[in-house]
Design a protein around this nucleic acid. Structure first.
Lengths: 81, 81
DNA sequence: GACTAATGTAATATATTTATCACATAATAT
DNA sequence: ATATTATGTGATAAATATATTACATTAGTC
């Protein structure tokens, strides 16, 4: 099963940004930011780009797509395949 | 104006893949692949990831988001802002 | 020229992201 | 304990990526 996790929370903490503040910077609703952070959906490339840039990172540093080897869904993370 | 261009065509040529073949590899319709290649829309992060991996590249190598400094639309490239 | 493969376009339908708004819980401070 | 701020959830609506199908055009070959 392929899943996505993000380092948004960690990076937000580093820059002392609240979800709301980051959402504003990126021009997105707080809910979208929240769901993004929890890996609950598969954002558009441009949104991912803006989030990464706002956190002084690259897309691949912030959004981590991985195959965990299992075949059963795990929690409420986004199921990509 | 922020726009996106891609190096898909160039990389496809390097690996001698047709749009159709790459679309199959990535599990997407040929039309989606075509529009993606021309930067006509803003793919999901996971799709961008799969395309990049299929072309042995990173997302940031394949999808190039840039601000060209102008304020008027140019051609039919995707207008991201 | 005709033939074929590859690329491009158009119309419509479906799926999923994203917005909006309202409320619930957690954490922290006073 | 009560404010206050941050985080989380639910329902519904809007926007847009993507699928599907069929046809048009270009490039290359015979």
């Amino acid at each position: 099963m392929i899943k996505m996790r993000t380092r948004i929370k960690e990076l937000r903490a580093r820059y002392e940004l609240t979800q709301d503040e980051l959402a504003d910077i990126v021009n997105v609703s707080r809910r979208t930011m929240l769901y993004l952070e929890k890996g609950k959906y598969n954002p558009s490339l441009f949104l991912a780009y803006k989030v990464a840039k706002s956190l002084h990172s690259t897309i691949e540093e912030v959004f981590i797509i991985e195959d965990d080897g299992t075949s059963s869904p795990d929690g409420d993370a986004l199921n990509l395949e």
